[in-house]
Simulated assay, not measured.
Amino acid sequence: MTYAVYRFVQHTIRQAPEGGVTYEAFCMTAGCRAESGGFEDQDDARDWCLRHTGRNPGHDLFRRVVTDYARVLRDEE
């Protein structure tokens, strides 16, 4: 007969600063496929939205995406 012992270990997930953060914006106006691309500074993504609306009246709805990285760490016992 085979026996198994299971040991459950707690883990924590936290933002990994070394991965950085990326800010992106996508115009959600019907038929417009404009997207900002990734920026390291959220002000750059905001400015892209403002410029896009200025050049394209009526394009005033955006989907904003913030991407960061996370690391899972084993809790100390």
Score class of each variant (00 low, 15 high):
D60C: 12
A16I: 00
R71C: 06
D68V: 00
A4R: 06
A4D: 05
A45F: 04
G54E: 13
C49T: 12
S36W: 12
E18N: 06
E35H: 14
R33Q: 14
Q15N: 05
G19Y: 02
L73D: 07
R64W: 04
R46L: 08
E76D: 13
A16R: 13
W48E: 10
D43F: 02
A4H: 06
H11A: 11
Y69E: 02
G31L: 15
V66K: 08
G37D: 08
D41Y: 01
P17Q: 01
E76G: 09
M1R: 11
D43S: 04
T29N: 11
R33D: 15
V21R: 13
R51S: 14
R64F: 07
V65E: 04
G37Q: 10
T29I: 01
A4T: 12
D47L: 08
E35S: 14
Y6M: 11
Y3W: 04
E24P: 00
P17V: 00
C49H: 03
P57V: 12
F62Y: 13
Q15C: 05
V5G: 09
A45K: 07
Q10D: 10
V72T: 15
F26Y: 11
Q42A: 01
R14Y: 00
D41L: 02
G19V: 04
A30Q: 15
H11N: 10
A25W: 02
V65M: 03
G20Y: 05
V9A: 06
F62A: 05
A34L: 13
E77Q: 10
V9I: 10
P57M: 11
H52G: 10
G54M: 07
